[in-house]
Design a protein around this nucleic acid. Structure first.
Lengths: 233, 233
DNA sequence: GAACCTTTGTAACAATTCGTAAGGTTTGAG
DNA sequence: CTCAAACCTTACGAATTGTTACAAAGGTTC
């Protein structure tokens, strides 16, 4: 899987440098241009995954460019602009931009917004659907737990909710109330025994030893802790 | 084509009123809630096109809610928050939000950002005439399913509607209500068991193993997921 | 127009999931 | 050590979903 390509179009060298550094740090490939002409020429060879475009360009009307890029070619465009008026932002977005960031900006936010765009445009390989931990692989797209030997055990939606909660904050105490909140609040106000059962069933599927649970540990009077080294992909 | 539905979750009545008015003015249908619990209850029936969520809710951790909504259910989420720090915005976006708007906001910008999200999510599923997936070829022009060996099985209009819905958003949870919406017509409160039968018949034509379906998976209490790598042409 | 076929919804019964109740077991305080 | 509270687990029933059978609706062929 190739790293996503981000094209930067800005006439200020300093901005280009800041963005390039932050983006490559974040694992993107980059390509930067100072003039619209070169930018459009490059576009004929490769269409980048995301275009970062500064509106205040000397040689072209930025808005027209954005419009052509976004609506005609279907590219993902994020405007970066010094103009912060609401009216500017609205027209930018209406013309087809996917996002509008005002200067001065924080590179971290730019990265986060690019990631958000990539996430939504890729419907197939949704990230955050598979987690590995201690020999197990949890496939949340297929609702299946995979063994070290490749054996698969299906788990239900309710069990998946609990598991996801654990995998989202491993090695941290999760109180009962937190869990209740976390699991869609099916509003079992009075009887939270339901949760115990959910956890019990999950433990069975993870083949936990009731006497000596290795992954889901009970903290008497406080909650649960999920031990295990989680890595999402 | 129905007007897009926007769900608003905010505990301040004034904000709800402002947003509702601006959105309906702009031609959206709206639905607003003051508590996460009610919001999630409604979500089990219909998944809105866009969710506007305020983070500072009294009864739930907003970020957890956003995470569940966005990554687990595949909804489009825009955060509206009083916290304007870069760090807040970054974590909000990383957790799966599609956009992050800080208070005070201008309703016009909210509308523009919602439109931008709808634009990008609509262009995603290109509905052509032929789709390939996991050894099958679906010819929607001829209403025929083609086998790996070239054997052809005809499918009906109703079956085709369901299949197209699946092929348009693969590997994502599709709620029962969403399907009902998608299949336009029979929208009435009439017994939706009809849909079960449609899906059952489609499964037979795809030669699914009833004990272990590989393509159309049922998520009890939540909906269906179509697994399979789809490419349209 | 009649006999036939296809499509589709409804009804009925089987299978699955999940919450609740009811015991049993573990934990920690005194 | 004793006991009560917290927690685990099994079993059962209600709700949800799968599948088959049947009938109504619409179209086709002769």
């Amino acid at each position: 899987m190739n790293a996503p390509l981000v094209s930067i179009l800005d006439d200020e060298p300093e901005i280009r440098a800041i963005l390039t550094e932050a983006l490559e740090e974040a694992g993107f490939r980059t390509q930067s241009f100072s003039r619209a002409r070169e930018f459009e020429a490059a576009l004929k060879r490769v269409v980048p995954d995301v275009c970062l475009v500064d509106l205040s360009l000397p040689d072209t009307d930025g808005l027209t460019l954005v419009h052509r890029l976004a609506l005609e070619r279907g590219a993902t465009v994020i405007i970066i602009s010094g103009r912060a008026q609401v009216q500017d932002r609205v027209t930018g977005l209406e013309l087809g931009a996917d996002d509008y960031i005002t200067k001065p900006f924080d590179p971290a936010e730019v990265v986060a917004r690019i990631r958000a765009r990539l996430r939504s445009s890729r419907s197939a390989p949704q990230s955050g659907q598979t987690a590995r931990f201690n020999g197990w692989i949890a496939h949340f797209d297929r609702y299946v737990l995979e063994d070290e030997s490749g054996t698969e055990t299906p788990f239900s939606h309710a069990e998946g909710e609990v598991l996801r909660l654990f995998l989202d904050s491993p090695k941290r105490l999760i109180s009962r109330a937190q869990m209740q909140d976390g699991l869609g609040g099916a509003a079992g106000e009075s009887f939270d025994r339901a949760m115990d059962v959910r956890i019990s069933r999950l433990r069975t599927k993870l083949r936990e030893d009731p006497k000596n649970p290795r992954l889901i540990k009970t903290i008497y009077g406080a909650g649960y802790i999920f031990l295990g080294d989680v890595s999402w992909s």
